[in-house]
């Protein structure tokens, strides 16, 4: 299956398009808030992306188009490291998606953190362990310590009517992530935590933006 991931930007905004055989299957657009067409996405952005896909690489006037090399999704308690790939952590409720990014080499990673604190057994479902391991793995692949920065999102409280205290783990996850990043002196460039809605966190390595797609519709580019 040939799948295309394109990043396009112009002076008005940015968007990521996922297409398969010339068919647009998904988009994350920074204009979605003001876009009147919503689902039936069709504007100069999509046109530009479509032209790029059809003509196999010649860019059109006015918009910058860059193709990404596939995507990597981190499952619950996992981390993934890539370069020029779209990174994803989907269906985050109380979980937190942590992104580390070295803008000088383009090496980036995403962790899908499930629990706060540290693991004695080195399990990456715990915030501190996951960040530590991902950080070290990135350095091993050639990322530069001083250039790495972080963005994270998640830690929601999806329960509206809550009768179980153990379900209140979102805040603790987010706090644990922030603590760890501070401890490792990794600058936090953006975060979006808390709230009552699930999130999908996507990282676009081309411009270093974290795309937070709320399960209930809204999309943020941070």
């Amino acid at each position: 299956m040939s799948s295309n991931i394109l990043f396009t930007s112009n002076e008005r905004g940015k968007a990521i398009f996922l297409s398969e055989r010339d068919l647009l299957i998904k988009s994350y657009c920074s204009l979605s808030k003001t876009c009147s067409r919503r689902e039936a996405c069709h504007c100069d952005f999509t046109e530009a992306a479509k032209n790029y896909a059809i003509s196999n690489g010649s860019s059109s006037a006015g918009s910058v188009i860059i193709a990404l090399k596939g995507e990597l999704a981190a499952g619950i308690g996992e981390y993934k490291i890539g370069k020029n790939q779209l990174l994803k952590a989907m269906g985050l409720g109380s979980c937190v998606g942590v992104i580390l990014f070295d803008h000088s080499t383009g090496i980036c990673g995403i962790a899908h953190v499930l629990l706060p604190g540290i693991s004695a057994k080195g399990e990456t479902k715990y915030a501190e362990t996951a960040i530590e391991k991902m950080y070290e793995a990135m350095l091993k692949q050639g990322a530069r310590k001083r250039k790495i920065s972080a963005k994270f999102a998640g830690g929601a409280q999806v329960f509206k009517h809550m009768n179980l205290d153990i379900l209140k783990i979102g805040d603790r996850n987010a706090a644990s992530v922030e603590e760890t990043l501070t401890k490792w002196k990794i600058p936090i460039l953006a975060k979006d935590v808390g709230g009552d809605s699930g999130r999908n966190v996507i990282f676009n390595p081309v411009d270093g933006s974290m795309i937070v797609k709320y399960t209930k519709g809204e999309t943020l580019w941070l």
Binding site: G93, V158, F159
Partner: peptide, 17 residues
């Protein structure tokens, strides 16, 4: 019961944790 309106993975992750 505790109520949530969201995608199932986002709801169960606190239980899974």
């Amino acid at each position: 019961p505790s109520f949530a309106l969201d995608v199932p993975t986002a709801v169960v992750d606190s239980v899974v944790s």
